[in-house]
Amino acid sequence: MPYEPPTHTVERSLRATTGCKIIAGVDEVGRGAWAGPVTVCAAVTGLRRPPEGLTDSKLISPKRRLELAGELESWVTSYALGHSSPQEIDELGMTAALRLAAVRALDALPVRPEAVILDGKHDYLGEPWRVRTVIKGDQSCIAVAAASVIAKVRRDAMMAELGGAAGEYEAFGFADNAGYPSPTHKTALEERGPTPYHRLSWAYLDALPRWRHLKKVRVSAAAAALESGGQLGFDF
């Protein structure tokens, strides 16, 4: 299916209106998974022409995505990854866990960005960062698309390694489903129960009578404050 390639339009706009020159594109992967971390990539690209075929990682074949990630990692000015563990997701809630992973990624960059382009509608990052949200930014914005591809490939590799660890979790099919819902994943959960890498606050446990007692329903006060519009008490 033809698509419009991403551009530097948003970066140019930010440069013109704010004077910011170091701008990071930020995207996440793993939000809807049952297992594994939520992973955020922050990528700084400048205004150079990107590798051919760059777009939202979900629109690229797995083979080309892997090739493209390798090209991007040497093409970008800099990039960094941040993760929030399943335990942090259970304790904090997804919004706060996303912010934690994003801050970890941004803090790991060699130079602090002056502005951030965040994929999606909602600003889960907030102050003190200067944030521009862009719906479908992973399709329209070069820096966000680059972050999307790198995050997807890196997290998929992590999950594949997890699934192959001594064969202990091979039955869950992490190499194929990356921790997302799938028939193989559900069957393994029914038979074996959740692993230490599963999110125990997720609704999938409601459909597993044998393991339902493991579900965590408590969310921290900090996460509750954030979800209701309050301020987080974390010192990042």
Rank of each mutant, 00 (worst) to 15 (best):
T77F: 00
I150D: 01
P196K: 03
P181F: 09
E190N: 08
E168R: 15
E170C: 00
G126L: 11
E91S: 13
A80G: 10
Y79K: 05
L100N: 01
Y180G: 04
D123P: 06
Q139L: 03
R99W: 02
L125M: 12
G120N: 09
H213M: 01
G137V: 12
D107L: 06
V149H: 05
G93C: 04
D123A: 06
Y180V: 09
V131F: 13
M94T: 07
H83N: 14
I135V: 15
Y204N: 00
M158A: 12
R192S: 12
G126P: 07
H185A: 10
Q139V: 00
L189R: 05
G93A: 04
Y204C: 05
L106S: 04
L125V: 11
V111M: 10
F172D: 11
R210A: 15
T77R: 08
S78P: 00
V144R: 05
A207F: 02
G179M: 08
Y124C: 06
A165C: 11
V217Q: 13
A188L: 12
S140R: 15
L189S: 03
S148N: 08
L100I: 01
I150A: 02
K216G: 01
E161Y: 00
Y197F: 15
A143F: 10
G163L: 02
M94Y: 01
H198S: 11
V131M: 07
M159N: 07
A207I: 00
E168S: 07
P110G: 03
F174Q: 11
Y169G: 03
L200E: 01
V111D: 13
E114W: 13
G82W: 01
D206L: 13
A80L: 07
C141V: 15
A157D: 13
L100S: 09
R99K: 14
D119A: 07
P183V: 06
R210F: 00
A175I: 02
A102S: 14
P209D: 07
R112V: 14
K216A: 07
I135K: 10
L98V: 02
M94E: 02
R192P: 02
I142P: 01
Y180W: 09
Y204R: 00
V153P: 03
A160T: 13
V131P: 08
Y204G: 00
L200Y: 01
I142K: 03
S148L: 08
S78T: 13
A178Y: 05
V134P: 05
S84D: 04
G82M: 10
P110R: 04
A97Y: 01
